[in-house]
Nucleic acid binder design. Structure first.
Lengths: 201, 201
DNA sequence: AATGTGATGTCATCTGATGACATGACTCTA
DNA sequence: TAGAGTCATGTCATCAGATGACATCACATT
């Protein structure tokens, strides 16, 4: 029953206490979601491929969706740290944009992998919901960071939400682009476009 | 077993074919979500209070969350219609903002009801996820409306996403406000604030 | 060798969700 | 007015996600 499980990572016998169950589950989940789709994949399938039981899956991930998103916490932390460390700046919007820009190198280096993950998410409403709330929480965290710097309540929320909007649009453009494109450049260009768009009359 | 169900709307005997099951379910759900919280409310409880079975609940609403959101479709339609009907305008951003502004009167007249619904949603992550995807879909629809008007791809997405961001912030401010406040005014003021914030250097 | 600790398996159970089918109530028409 | 048709609902069965309780296995420490 066990030992038949074969993780996508290199593993030999894989007994009960083979280390790296979390990583194997993550790999197995992404692979299966790509192969058959999210809904068609049972948690038991993922667990089997990773060589564990379904119960163990839920010890590593809160639910079936989270397996695709828990890595995103890293991005939020980095953006937040950048925001804290940043020098005083003219506009809160510039501040948040700069903070977001520091995270582009984490995901920007492998567009194909990002595209795979994005394709899975784009194909399922539940996954989109989870993605959106992750982004919203990131935005809220950034807004709080601004408030701690003394930025007004509404202004902080507005800057963070707007920057997140720019980020989403830039990210989408980057994923869709056929030509060579740097995520950081896409972000800057989109921000410039917003400036034009929102220019006071 | 039946006949014991007592909807929050005025109803007498309420036999099997008492009309308005959808509305009764909606009322019952909101009331129970407020009383005990979303997670603590079983679909069977909602159905019982509405005088139907759980199976019937799922014939009216796709899932336990949707009962709080299906009314929002009206807002999207109105915004979209306003966007289609609007005259040519300088900036796509102005266009979307104007479209969103037409919807403020639908929900703006009863802040207390909105607050109740908002309180339920704010207390539960699943509900926030659903709310976010609804707003995202509305934003996407508005972006498509702009594209049909010939607005460029990225610019359309950016205008819609930014306007949605403004809307969210304004809405939050309106809900939180202790003083008398018109939703439309909040929207306009927040938009003006964005103009300042994003002013080209 | 005994013991403790942590990761995992096993089992039971709940709840959300859905398909299949039966049935009650209402409408229309011959 | 009886009968057919239709629609909303009830009933039953089943599945998948999720969680608590407890047993068990491997490993480290002593």
């Amino acid at each position: 029953m066990r030992g038949s499980g074969r993780g996508s990572t290199t593993l030999g016998g894989m007994g009960r206490w083979e280390p790296g169950a979390g990583g194997r589950l993550r790999d197995a989940a992404l692979a299966l979601y790509l192969e058959r789709g999210f809904e068609q994949t049972m948690v038991a399938d993922i667990a089997e491929r990773a060589g564990v039981t379904a119960r163990t899956f839920f010890r590593y991930f809160a639910d079936k969706r989270e397996v695709l998103f828990d890595a995103a916490a890293e991005l939020e932390e980095k953006a937040l740290a950048a925001l804290e460390a940043a020098p005083a700046m003219a506009s809160p919007l510039d501040l948040v944009m700069a903070a977001l820009e520091t995270t582009t190198d984490i995901i920007g280096y492998d567009r194909e992998l990002v595209r795979k993950r994005h394709a899975v998410i784009a194909a399922n409403a539940e996954l989109q919901e989870r993605e959106l709330i992750k982004l919203a929480r990131k935005s809220a965290a950034l807004a709080d960071g601004l408030r701690r710097r003394g930025v007004g309540d509404t202004e902080a929320g507005l800057a963070a939400e707007t920057a997140s909007a720019v980020y989403r649009v830039a990210f989408q453009r980057w994923v869709d682009a056929t030509e060579e494109l740097d995520l950081r450049d896409a972000l800057r260009e989109t921000f410039a476009q917003l400036r034009t768009l929102a220019a006071p009359r």
